[in-house]
Design a protein around this nucleic acid. Structure first.
Lengths: 110, 110
DNA sequence: AATTTATATTGCAATATTACGATAATATAA
DNA sequence: TTATATTATCGTAATATTGCAATATAAATT
């Protein structure tokens, strides 16, 4: 065990969970927030800003890149990362759809 | 290691990550979606609907309850769970705030 | 009281995540 | 070419998560 039974759920549920998973770490939230402000940044900048080791930041960037939320372009020796606008909006819409599914509570039993 | 260094991040980042974490499993997404439609349901209903063991559903419900996203009221032998409106809106707003932090890309390097 | 029904908890095995040092890979500068 | 700077990957240790059988708990019914 220790493995999620993805076959029991539909693609929307699995996708939403996957997007949530990549947001489920404060370092990755911090990286995203940094990119929202700075528009672009590289590994070294984040190492200085967050206080995690270079290998750790690199790993978090990889996970963000794997789901497509950020993209990196080689700029000489360093790599510039930035938000992928299309993916960002896609994720935003998926979460918005979930959150808007809530109707005023006329629930009698709680 | 294997433990998140929460002390490196601010409360907003840690909270957002914690909320994302509870959404980071398709079963919990499915439970939430079920509650959004049905307004209320109990463990046994979910066991039949999701196809996971009773103990597993109970565990997922516990995690959802721990962050306050759902609440349960004892109704005879069973427990009726439903969305907690205040918490739901709080979480919704936290995510909305993050997603709205993105401005049109005038980023030159990617 | 004994049985049934519904849920929670415990204990355990399998797997995933987090973090970092060490090292490799790549490109620029001296 | 050698040195420097930046990033990625590998290996490893510590911890977390997922899932379920077994069991415990609690309320309603017989």
């Amino acid at each position: 065990m220790g493995v999620t039974k993805t076959d029991l759920f539909n693609s929307t549920q699995n996708e939403l969970a996957a997007y949530a998973k990549v947001l489920a770490h404060p370092a990755r939230i911090a990286i995203i927030q940094f990119l929202l402000k700075a528009e672009t940044c590289c590994n070294t900048t984040l190492v200085g800003d967050l206080g995690l080791a270079q290998a750790t930041i690199s790993q978090h960037l990889k996970e963000l890149k794997n789901v497509g939320i950020i993209q990196g372009t080689v700029e000489g020796v360093s790599v510039n990362y930035c938000i992928n606008p299309e993916k960002w909006n896609e994720i935003k819409e998926k979460f918005t759809e979930l959150f808007e599914g809530f109707n005023p509570p006329n629930c009698s039993s709680c």
